[in-house]
Amino acid sequence: MHLHKYEKIWLVFGIGSLALFLAVLGVAAFAFGHQPPSHMTTVDSQNLSEDPLFSEPGLTQINESTYRATLIAQAFGYNPNKIEVPVGSTVIFEVTSADVVHSFTIPGTNVNFMVTPGHVNMAEHTFNEPGEYLVICNEYCGTGHHYMQMRIEVISQ
């Protein structure tokens, strides 16, 4: 197979760029921990009230500036539908679904993950600016999908 000289230049450039992207992504993920949300814990989506983690969804403080938010996504809202944290807090979100597939998405941040029934998914985010953050479901979940939302109140101290 004959390759033109310029085509060789192009393939080296093109494949080199792809390799560079993969290297950057791999280092960010496997060395610095910026992984895509891929939590492996499973639950019984039809019996969340008996689940040790999700029987009482809500916010718990882990240490001075870290919180764990355990949330249930359900057509068409979240339980609880509002949480409050002081500015500068890091919140670990742990979310599952009581019915169909949803998402947990804070627009303008990297928190944007799928919530599949039977599975728990996680992400964490540090809120450095005060304000009322919008959380939406961006995965189609039925006729009321566009109403599905909650709020995160980040309070300045």
């Binding site: 992504l25 791999g26 993920a29 496997f30 992984q35 895509p36 949300p37 891929s38 939590h39 492996m40 814990t41 499973t42 998402s103 944007n112 993950f113 799928m114 599949t116 599975h119 728990v120 998914n121 996680m122």
Partner: peptide
């Protein structure tokens, strides 16, 4: 298409 989903490990996604 499932990079943001739970139940698949980071390794296989990568």
């Amino acid at each position: 298409h499932q990079l943001m989903e739970s139940g698949v490990t980071e390794f296989w996604k990568y």
